[in-house]
Design a protein around this nucleic acid. Structure first.
Lengths: 339, 339
DNA sequence: TTGTACGCGTTATCAT
DNA sequence: ATGATAACGCGTACAA
């Protein structure tokens, strides 16, 4: 086992001082060509690489960024991570991923763990528990220490930091508008509770489009599911009593699930009833019929978040100005609506 | 902005030495009760937390583990990460995720980046390019440096290290066996090239089950797709010429896609033709009909990998003994086959 | 041209 | 009971 070689090792072998080795490896002008060549050859031979930890300690920069998200088994977050990874790697940063699993406590613990020097900044999306609780002290502490934070998707106004969001209201709006233009008369929505900021915004967009139309808003047509868990009977009962001719679902799962239900009861998609979901994941693409969705552009979101964070990390000035980037959602048309 | 407080800061404020502070915070017997109380109160007040980087430098242990995988937008890998995360976090480790995106070069770069002190060990699954190339020098270098490595799923025999795999051959075997028991006569398989170790093993299991039966192996019934990309026409042509009554697909996508094709041509699933796929992801669950799959138990795999790695990291002895854990796949029965 | 000394934050050993 | 010192690996200002 050939253990990692250090500057000290090289210095000892070559009988020069550590700083000479250090300078030689950086091609410093101060060092003679002879010595440089000797040192560099030796370093290459033994595959010398500087120790990241030592450099981190010295520079007070780790070149790591912490990503804290509620759930990784969720296509949207997964694409965001990929975007972050790509961008961060290109700028020489590593990504430490921590999962809150929708738990406030885990979110706090993970952030504290990382905040003690392990990372130069955070990119995060709040757990649903945190959003329900409305307790953001862990975020406050981190920002007060001068650690940059970028919040994405599930954000809060209580914290001053950079933010990246999809215009979820617009997403709900354009989807509903699409239904209206196609002459649908009973447009329903299946969503979660208002505690999830995104669900709330999407529902508002839905309501806005309806109130601008001659159809008007009818609260009976909105089903608020108490949790992200599927509840077969609630949805079934809702669809059977309300008999909508179009349904906007706050996520893919609700949509695909609802489509199966109505298909079993003999309805034809998209003629008898049309569907639009949120999140352009595998499910939508391979559903039968394939699902029209409001695409969230997660990868783009990840890239933008990473860029904002790293720019802030590397900026000298202590600017206290924060911006919120709003990405526009787009409709990906598939078979679940008329063309 | 209240910047992080250090031992030195506390020592200065309380007019004691740094080492006294350090000991007091560890409740050392050497320190008087008075001093301890004073120091601990002060530390709590200013929310002192030791700097991870300094501790890493001192201990030569980072409490980070590096995970290098080909792709994160893939349900199986995602579940593995979750398993790793859960287990690693519980033992106080953080997870640094790097994506090779199926590229040999990226795999090498990422590993080198992490190997210079950022992590205590690797958990990884090889990129397809690496497996095709058969070049494992980057892994050799890392293991020779004494950094523990656990390979999972996409592994190689060229490297001596701990490994965790699903018994993919068994998976192919039990799925095919199931078809045979149900009286299927023309059992086809849609797979990728042999360069992916898992595909190869699954195909071998398929062949084994057939050769043990009266049906025998017929190479015309095996479609090897040149890449993971979907190629509509290849599959369509294959299904139309061979007209199988059962199809085993090496992944979810192939399966769901094939099901749509046969449904469009009027066949009934599962009576006219049955399907089994690999990987128990969202796609299978919500497909129409829902897809019977050979479940890979990714989360379990992640946990086992993390346990093996951390045990090795924390074991004193320099045991050169490596083990390969083989997890058993199970069949998750859904609507795409007869019950 | 080369080397010395110090600092990053912490801990462990040895002295007082 | 407390403190000084060295060490982890590196970089750099300063000295020789």
């Amino acid at each position: 086992m050939k253990t990692k070689i250090t500057l000290k090792d090289i210095a000892r072998e070559l009988e020069v001082s550590i700083s000479t080795v250090s300078k030689a490896l950086k091609n410093s002008e101060e060092i003679s060509r002879d010595t440089k060549e000797k040192v560099q050859a030796f370093a290459k031979l033994y595959n010398y690489k500087p120790n990241n930890i030592a450099i981190s300690l010295k520079n007070k920069r780790t070149k790591n960024i912490g990503v804290v998200i509620p759930d990784i088994v969720h296509h949207f977050f997964t694409t965001v991570i990929r975007g972050i990874e790509k961008y961060a790697n290109a700028r020489g940063y590593n990504v430490i991923v921590c999962l809150s699993e929708e738990s406030f406590d885990k979110e706090v613990i993970n952030m504290e763990m990382l905040a003690n020097g392990s990372i130069d900044g955070f990119i995060m999306s709040l757990s649903s528990e945190t959003q329900q609780k409305g307790d953001y002290n862990h975020l406050k502490e981190v920002t007060e220490q001068g650690i940059p934070v970028v919040l994405f998707d599930r954000i809060t106004n209580e914290i001053d930091c950079d933010k990246v969001v999809i215009d979820d209201e617009l997403g709900g709006y354009i989807a509903t508008k699409k239904f209206i233009e196609q002459g649908k008369r009973k447009i329903a929505m299946i969503t979660t509770g208002d505690y999830l900021s995104v669900s709330k915004a999407r529902t508002m967009g839905y309501q806005k489009a309806l109130s601008e139309s001659s159809l008007g808003v009818n609260d009976d047509l909105v089903l608020k599911m108490p949790s992200m868990e599927m509840d077969e009977n609630r949805i079934k009962e809702f669809l059977e009593t309300q008999k909508p001719d179009a349904v906007l679902c706050v996520n893919e799962i609700f949509a695909v699930y609802s489509m199966r239900l109505v298909q079993k009861s003999g309805l034809k998609i998209p003629d008898d009833i049309s569907f639009i979901g949120f999140t352009d994941g595998v499910l939508s693409k391979y559903a039968n019929p394939s699902l029209t969705v409001v695409a969230q552009h997660g990868e783009k979101m990840g890239e933008v978040s990473a860029k904002m964070l790293i720019d802030k990390i590397e900026s000298e000035e202590e600017e206290e100005t924060y911006q919120t980037k709003i990405l526009e959602p787009t409709l990906v048309i598939r078979e679940s609506i008329n063309q």
